[in-house]
Design a protein around this nucleic acid. Structure first.
Length: 885
RNA sequence: GGGAGCGUGCCGGAAUUGGUAGACGGACUCGACUCAAAAUCGAGCGCCUUCGGGCAUGUGGGUUCGAGUCCCACCGCUCCCACCA
């Protein structure tokens, strides 16, 4: 075989990529008024400079979705951009003295060229980078919208301080062990004046509207609902009484979900940070309270919330009056009460709350049972809290009420008597957006001694990041140290004032990028309402599960705020969400030393040994990472097999939402499949088949079918071929509707090619052309370069045709012809008492009675029924007959 | 502790939603071609079997003519949330 007839992806992919680009094949068509476009979106990457397999999987999935929609005649928006602010650029500046902007732009260029090699149908005309002024001026503009709406505010806050990155972190950026999501450092507590967005104003909507999102994975919706964390209960007020018995006039407000247990409250606990602690501490308790508060403030979140940690606290001397019983009960502070949830104060009901119980036992506080199990006089309370609902006792006029009714009755009584009210509480906190870093979007406000916080007038936007900055990596933000930038005249009164030196959390920048794509070059607004309403919401969003809470929740919040500001119309930004699984690599680990061994150093994968010690290695699949040496570089795969093989492999190897095990042998197998397709087409070309002038099109096939009808029907080979083709069309179309099942879609392509391999040679030209035409179009979304090349080889277009109309990617998705699936006889399964005993070929149109007769008179029946008549016969037409003796 | 999900050959995974379990691919075995190897093509490939068949979708029950699929209990794994009052 000569070289020119071999499948060499390297020889075709780059040139097709260039041709598509030159002919603008992926540019977004303009929508007619009222026309519904299709918006396919991948989560945009941070431009680290290196494309990894996780990116590849993400973008390939979205690309297939976009390409299928185009073939189905939809106008598609498929953009890409860069989440380009963030710490790595600043770290590079500190470590290597490079300019963060230049460093980022270089990375963008390099990643973009890697992306281009994948053959993605991205409209690069709409590219955005969050660190460019033409983008971030609008991030600033949007911040001012929040400020104007009263949704952005400053407050002193105990914040998470990352001692390594020298910055404040949002709650969401601190993991369960109290470590920074980025640096891994144990987070400290500091009190600083910070900017917040009032996401809590939208808590209820963000929760309610999850119900609309039936195109989202259930678990993402559940995670968001948990994060928002709505609970209903009551705020109850406890009058403060000094140690000497005098009312102070103050009241402690607690939040509880169990107002029905109020009669069992035997003490009240404040968070150590509660603002009333100092005022209510009795003289003789001051030393111990001070010592305790110091101790708690030195603890990390992790130490404080460790599960098995004993609860600790001290009494502060004052008392409060239980509003239900009138009793005086002690006031404590304890480390298990959190300052920033609820009211920072809880009532202690040891009999009915496990934490309260442990605390009371430790400090010998009284335990009073006020709930017993329904329908029982027994004490369910046995050395642990009884936390279930039940019936009230020792609760005065509420005795005998079940918990549910008691909650309502007691809350109503509290409201009537002025010591409480119903209250809905959310776990969600306001979003802390200030960052004490340089490489972020500057917060566009000016602090003036006379005028206070003054927004930078929108015509002065953007507030540009200064470029002449020294990076030491120590102390405050570089911006704060740059007097020439900080010192500014107040826009309001003209007196000397100071710029805000904090920058925004990068999640701010990524909370609206999908809106900008609809109108990326607008210089008057972040986007026009007509453009954003024409394209939004995103029809299909694809990205990693790691953004299930953060990015997706913030984006939903932004969308709702901007809707309320009349800037756009939709309630939710993302109609359908696909969270793709991780890409895992073969990982070798020495179980004794714990060391990870690069696969290149393992001589025999069937008996993996440590190259130095010879010890047997553990082999497993795990998420690709540098430290585990289990990464596979996309560039090397493309070099060796081409992008189409990589794409097909990723789509075929696992369903999109499941983890994918990268296996070189399987990649090789995928490459072989594409080679088989190539040879199949080569053979067809040699035979003289050509798709020019509509050969094999539905019209041409229709004519051929009509004349075959006159001449006594199709040959067996033609009928078999048509059945294979139209089965594949139906199956693949279904796999790409609703839930995306790319893995089975690819397997259907394989089946079709297998079938064509065996019958194409005996088929007549017109049906062979029909098969080839459909095969190549069905292949196009998955392996776009190969499909385009095969299309050209087959004469689907000639090199003289204009690519932008005659490309395989501009064809129409085929329709399955139901008549091709019809067969004369079908196999009928014969079951005896539910067990399969054989099958018969029966006429496809046989009715139930005929099928029953055929089954009863079959040899299978004779053999298994031994002459007895069955007591029951179940006939499922087209499937089976079950004979029950 | 609360929530979500999952258990199918040697492996990744299919299964028209209650109707022939194991599609498709990988690995492996045999054969053809070759001096040989690779590639390619063909065949086989759940387990047991006295070759009639029997047993098989984590385990044990149940519903049904019929269960991987539905119900109950249990076992195991994964992910998310969690001193949230």
């Amino acid at each position: 075989m000569s070289d020119s007839s071999r499948y060499q992806p390297q020889a075709i992919e780059a040139s097709w990529q260039r041709a598509w680009q030159q002919h603008g094949l992926h540019e977004t068509p303009a929508l007619e008024p009222g026309e519904q476009g299709f918006y396919a979106l991948s989560m945009f990457p941070y431009p680290s400079g290196n494309l990894h397999m996780g990116h590849v999987r993400n973008y390939v999935i979205t690309d297939v979705v976009a390409r299928v929609q185009r073939l189905r005649g939809r106008k598609v928006l498929h953009p890409m951009g860069w989440d380009a602010f963030g710490l790595p650029a600043e770290n590079a500046a500190i470590e290597r003295g490079v300019d963060p902007g230049a460093w980022t732009d270089q990375n963008i260029a390099s990643m973009r060229s890697q992306l281009d090699q994948l053959g993605l149908s991205i409209d690069w005309q709409r590219e955005v980078a969050t660190c460019h002024t033409d983008y971030y001026r609008w991030t600033q503009w949007l911040f001012l919208q929040f400020l104007e709406a009263g949704l952005a505010y400053q407050k002193d806050a105990t914040v998470n301080w990352d001692p390594i990155d020298q910055t404040v972190l949002a709650n969401e950026q601190v993991d369960s062990e109290g470590r920074s999501w980025r640096s891994g450092a144990l987070v400290e507590k500091r009190k600083l004046r910070q900017w917040f967005l009032k996401i809590t104003d939208y808590a209820q909507q963000l929760l309610d509207d999850l119900d609309q999102l039936d195109g989202w994975p259930e678990r993402v919706r559940t995670m968001q609902a948990n994060w928002i964390g709505r609970s209903t209960g009551a705020e109850l007020q406890f009058e403060v009484i000094t140690a000497e018995g005098q009312p102070t006039g103050e009241r402690i407000t607690v939040f509880t979900t169990r107002p029905d247990t109020i009669f069992g409250a035997t003490y009240v606990v404040l968070a150590p940070e509660h603002p009333l602690v100092a005022a209510l501490t009795a003289l003789e308790q001051q030393l111990s309270v001070q010592a305790f508060c110091d101790l708690v403030s030195r603890q990390s979140e992790q130490e404080r919330t460790a599960e098995d940690k004993p609860k600790r606290g001290v009494p502060i001397g004052s008392q409060v009056r239980n509003p239900a019983t009138g009793e005086l009960i002690p006031l404590w502070i304890a480390d298990y009460v959190l300052a920033d949830y609820g009211t920072g104060a809880v009532m202690g009901v040891p009999a009915h709350d496990q934490r309260d119980f442990l605390f009371a036992r430790q400090y010998e506080l009284p335990v009073r049972q006020v709930i017993i199990p329904e329908g029982s006089d027994e004490h369910a309370f046995e050395g642990g809290a009884w936390t279930e609902a039940g019936v009230l006792i020792h609760s005065g006029r509420f005795d005998g009420l079940p918990s549910g009714k008691a909650k309502v009755a007691i809350t109503a009584a509290a409201e009537a008597e002025g010591w409480g009210q119903e209250r809905v509480q959310f776990r969600l906190r306001d979003w802390l957006i200030s960052r004490q870093r340089y490489w972020g979007c500057p917060i566009p406000v000016i602090h003036c001694d006379s005028c206070g916080v003054v927004p930078v007038p929108s015509e002065q936007l953007p507030v540009e990041l200064p470029r002449d900055v020294a990076f030491s990596g120590k102390g405050a933000s570089p911006l704060a140290q740059l007097d020439s930038w900080v010192q500014v005249a107040c826009p309001c009164c003209g007196k000397p004032a100071r710029r805000e030196t904090d920058t925004m959390d990068t999640f701010m920048c990524s909370s609206w990028y999908f809106l900008r794509y609809s109108d990326p070059h607008n210089t008057q607004l972040p986007f026009s309402r007509s453009a954003v309403d024409a394209w939004l919401p995103v029809d299909q969003y694809v990205g990693g599960i790691e953004h299930a809470i953060l990015h997706l929740l913030y984006s939903r919040f932004f969308t709702k705020v901007l809707r309320d500001r009349q800037l756009l119309s939709c309630d939710e930004p993302f109609t359908r969400l696909l969270t793709q699984g991780m890409v895992q690599g073969v990982t070798y680990k020495n179980p004794n030393s714990g060391k990870y061994i690069p696969p290149g150093e393992v001589a025999d994968p069937t008996d993996p040994r440590d190259p130095i010690s010879g010890e047997r290695l553990e082999t497993f699949f795990e998420k690709m990472s540098k430290s585990k040496h289990n990464g596979v570089d996309p560039a090397s795969v493309i070099d060796r097999y081409g992008a189409d093989t990589a794409r097909m492999f990723i789509l075929f190897k696992a369903p999109p939402e499941k983890d994918l095990e990268w296996d070189d042998a399987d990649v090789e197998g995928q490459f072989r499949f594409l080679q088989r397709l190539w040879r199949l087409v080569e053979a067809a070309v040699e035979r003289g088949l050509n798709l020019a002038d509509g050969a094999g099109s539905p019209e041409a096939v229709g004519v051929a079918l009509a004349s075959a009808q006159q001449g006594g029907g199709l040959t067996q080979a033609d009928a078999a071929l048509r059945r294979a083709v139209h089965t594949a069309i139906a199956a693949i179309s279904e796999d790409l509707d609703g839930d995306y099942q790319f893995n089975t879609a690819v397997s259907e392509l394989m089946k079709l090619s297998n079938a064509m391999g065996s019958v194409l040679a005996e088929s007549s030209d017109v049906f062979a052309c029909e098969a080839l035409r459909n095969l190549v179009i069905l292949l196009a979304p998955f392996a776009p370069h190969l499909a385009e090349e095969l299309w050209l080889k087959l004469g689907g277009r000639t090199s003289a045709d204009a690519l932008h109309s005659s490309s395989v990617h501009r064809q129409r998705w085929p329709q399955s012809d139901a008549s091709a699936l019809v067969r004369d006889t079908v196999p009928l399964v014969i079951q005896i008492k539910g067990k399969v005993r054989g099958s018969l070929d029966v006429p496809a149109d046989a009715d139930k009675a005929t099928l029953e007769q055929l089954a009863l008179t079959s040899e299978i029946a004779a053999k298994w029924l031994e002459g007895k008549a069955p007591s029951r016969v179940i006939v499922v037409p087209g499937k089976l007959v079950n004979l029950v003796p």
